[in-house]
Design a protein around this nucleic acid. Structure first.
Length: 584
RNA sequence: GCCUUCGUCGUUCAAUGGAUAGGACAGAGGUUUCCUAAACCUUAAAUGGAGGUUCGAUUCCUCCCGAAGGCACCA
């Protein structure tokens, strides 16, 4: 259940508290209160069970402690005070429930007023709390010369959703694809290509060939450690400006980007900036120099290290003993550049959770460099594991590639669309299949907590029933189908008084907070879950309550209601990067 | 060995310092002269183990068991 965080001061005279409880009905005033009494949380939540009211609060427990009375007494006190402070009769019923909960039921009129407000608001759900502040969202970040796999899919989809969500809240979002286009891996690849490379194959199926070389090289390196040295040597040559190696690197990079673009296009993902690690090549030497000069880094066994022991972290390496740069070095150069060029307040890195330690070190060093604190966030994503519950490794050639997933999803979806929608033209069917397939894949990922490992499962990934992307899309289609037959017009909210109608209104009312919660926590699944909940209420509503056949006044109000629900569904799904259709 | 994340119906995922732990799939049963059955309704089923803090713990703390990931010349 989503909570309505209501910041207010507990040390407030207790007779004021009930007024505040009432005021939570009004978002505007709630904001005023938040500004006036920051830092104290009291939760007014929507209970899980309907018999516990529309809203409930546990305020009595803290009040009881402060005023030295029993929670039940405190609850009674709150109840009578609220009744006294509610001349407009916003609240229909207040119940005190053991051991000290106070449950509130709104009058139908209050709920109707809420709906009147929702139906009049433009861009319902969105807001301007971001106030134009800049935020860089770094996501996707695939490695050049390797195909994008399931792991990248997750970071890409989650990052894209978080970028969308922040934009909807009024932030100025910079979407950044931080390409992994520098590092020893290119040394290895160069070495492998020099030994076994085939220009023809590279031209025909570039990524596939490069992957083959990489896997072969890794396998050899396992047997013969000489290969590791060879890779490092070739990378060192690249960093020292070797022309032949540079040319090969450029080639690898070019073919990879082309391949990535194909995937991004299918996923409907776009970036504002695609600057990778290689961009910072010239920043690295000055950076390491200044690190030494400032006494932050020192030599150890030939390498340049930063001691982080006082932070309880292992030491971090910024230069290898052969003088080559490392991931961390480039990351530091990267945020230095970002901060100076974009003057941003926040940088969030949507990257696999397995890099958690790296980011802790990275952020600490950034702090030591005076780049700031509390500006950088590692938004970790857990792994997609193989059916055996183990990590899928590219090196061992066990990965599942995004392109294959999409193609498989498409072919399955095409069949289903054909079966369910035979009357539609082949062209439209293809469009439907594409939107549904991508929607299913994205929603499947976004509806789960980003920190839980996902076990790769075709059936679940391509689920079209129940809590799935297609279900949400279908609900939207059904609502639109009604709305096509009759347009919403002026209506009187007072005719909406049935439980199903009021329930849908109350669900709608919680849309803005769902978006906000996802933004605050960087967990898009809160929004996904909310949307499923909303779709469920909407489906139930149109199953139980005929819209077009209702008498005129009711019909108008119901049309307005499903119109708002459809809009919210579309807005929400789009924030998750899921497209909607008019028919399916 | 140390660090991080995690352990919830048969399966796969949610939630929360609060009341009766929620959904989906699979199972059982029902709904179609009615706005698209990719739907709706009913039903059965779970917090790894032991302590502690608390009015209240599945959630916080300690220990044990189990899983995944990480721990300076990868990214």
């Amino acid at each position: 259940m989503l909570s309505r965080p209501l910041r207010l001061c507990l040390s407030l005279p207790s007779d004021l508290i009930p007024i505040i409880l009432l005021l939570m009905l009004s978002e505007k005033i709630q904001k005023l209160i938040e500004a006036e009494f920051p830092g104290n949380d009291i939760s007014v939540t929507v209970p899980e069970v309907q018999t516990h009211g529309h809203f409930t609060t546990n305020l009595a427990f803290s009040l009881a402690k402060k005023e030295r009375m029993s929670p039940m007494q405190a609850a009674e006190k709150i109840k009578s005070a609220v009744i006294a402070e509610d001349p407009e009769k916003l609240i229909e019923k207040i119940e005190v429930a053991a051991p000290g909960f106070v449950n509130f039921w709104l009058t139908p009129k209050s709920i109707q007023d809420i709906f009147a407000r929702i139906s009049q608001s433009k861009n319902f759900g969105k807001s301007k709390v971001g106030d134009g502040r800049k935020i860089i969202v770094e996501y996707s970040s695939p490695n050049i010369a390797k195909p994008m796999h399931v792991g990248h899919f997750r970071a890409t989809i989650i990052g894209d959703a978080l970028a969308n969500i922040h934009k909807a809240l009024g932030y100025k979002v910079i979407r950044w694809n931080y390409l992994g286009d520098w590092g020893v891996q290119f040394g290895k690849l160069t070495a492998a290509y020099k030994m076994w490379g085939d220009a023809k194959k590279l031209k025909a199926e570039p990524i596939k060939h490069l992957l083959e070389l990489y896997v072969r090289f890794s396998a050899q390196a396992k047997i013969n450690p000489e290969f590791e040295n060879l890779g490092q040597l070739e990378f060192k040559k690249l960093e020292n400006g070797d022309k032949g190696n540079r040319k090969l690197w450029e080639l690898f990079r070019k073919v990879s980007l082309k391949d990535f673009d194909k995937v991004y296009k299918m996923l409907g993902v776009k970036f504002d900036v695609e600057i990778g690690e290689s961009f910072y090549e010239s920043h690295l030497k000055p950076l390491t120099k200044s690190l030494v000069k400032d006494g932050i880094a020192k030599r150890s066994e030939g390498a340049l290290i930063i001691d982080l022991e006082k932070y309880g972290l292992p030491r971090a390496l910024v230069e290898k003993s052969d003088g080559a740069s490392l991931y961390l070095t480039r990351d530091l150069a990267n945020i230095k550049y970002r901060l100076s060029k974009y003057k941003t307040d926040k940088i969030i890195h949507v990257v696999g959770q397995e890099q958690s330690l790296h980011f802790q070190q990275f952020f600490r060093v950034a702090e030591m460099l005076g780049l700031g604190k509390d500006k950088f966030f590692h938004v970790g994503t857990a792994l997609v594991l193989g059916p055996d519950g183990k990590k899928l490794s590219t090196r061992e050639g066990k990965t599942i590639f995004i392109e294959d997933i999409i193609n498989e999803a498409l072919s399955i979806t095409r069949e289903i669309v054909k079966e369910k929608n035979s009357s539609v033209s082949a062209k439209e069917r293809e469009k439907i299949a594409k939107v549904v397939a991508i929607g299913a894949l994205k929603y499947n990922d976004l509806s789960q907590s980003r920190l839980s490992n996902i076990i790769f499962d075709w059936n679940k990934m391509l689920s079209f029933e129940g809590d799935s992307g297609p279900y949400l899309q279908y609900t939207y289609v059904r609502l639109k189908s009604i709305l096509r037959k009759m347009r919403p017009s002026k209506f009187d909210p007072k005719v909406l008084a049935l439980p199903g109608e009021l329930d849908l209104i109350l669900k709608l009312d919680r849309f803005p907070e769902a978006i906000q919660k996802s933004a605050e926590t960087f967990y898009p699944h809160y929004l996904a879950q909310y949307l499923y909940d909303l779709a469920k209420s909407a489906s139930r509503f149109y199953e139980e309550h005929p819209v077009l056949k209702a008498e005129s006044a009711v019909r108008k109000a119901r049309l307005a209601l499903i119109s708002c629900a459809a809009d919210a569904l579309k807005t929400g799904l789009n924030l998750l990067g899921v497209e909607t259709l008019e028919r399916m």
